[in-house]
């Protein structure tokens, strides 16, 4: 076990865990941020997507010892009042079915839009391809990303 000082959603957090603990479980079990989801544990589904210094990463494949002073943002910290344009677009398009994959989808989309403010259909499909939605909400996700992109201008 070792002590790590982390910055999560702008807040300093200290955890005492094994160095090989994936950030996914640090967030869920130690900091009680359960919005980040476990889907596969091997970087294949995207349910665990968070931002590391603003870029989407799979928290199941990022061990706590690699984080150092990089800032982590989770779905709970994406916006102060749940009003990020993507969150609003997700509601407007009534995207979720079961909802389990959606935090990861939103986080991945947020990273996409911060790098490419006006993605084409192909660019959306390409960037989002690592995020599985077992319920099949893909067409709505695409529409919601486009709506948010327009809003963010």
């Amino acid at each position: 076990m070792a002590v790590y000082n982390l910055t999560i959603n702008g807040k300093k957090q200290q955890v005492d865990v094994d160095p090989d603990t994936p950030m996914l479980w640090v967030l869920r079990d130690h900091i009680n941020l359960v919005g980040t989801k476990y889907g596969c544990g091997i970087g294949q589904c995207g349910a665990c997507t968070v931002h590391l210094d603003g870029n989407a990463v799979r928290s199941c494949s990022l061990t706590v010892d690699k984080v150092k002073d990089q800032k982590i943002t989770t779905i709970e910290g994406l916006s102060a009042n749940g009003d990020h344009p993507l969150q609003e677009a997700w509601i407007a398009h009534d995207v979720p079915q079961c909802g389990y994959c959606q935090a990861g989808q939103v986080m991945n989309a947020a990273s996409l839009l911060s790098n490419n403010s006006n993605p084409s259909d192909e660019e959306i499909a390409g960037a989002m391809n690592g995020n599985i939605c077992r319920c099949g909400t893909y067409t709505r996700i695409k529409a919601a990303i486009k709506t948010a992109a327009t809003k963010m201008g």
Binding site: G35, T36, Y38, G82, W90, D94, P96, G99
Partner: peptide
């Protein structure tokens, strides 16, 4: 709209997990 929509997109606790 889905009554749990806002909770879902803000990552609130909803699931058995």
């Amino acid at each position: 709209k889905n009554v749990d929509g806002q909770k879902i997109v803000t990552g609130q606790s909803l699931f058995g997990m």
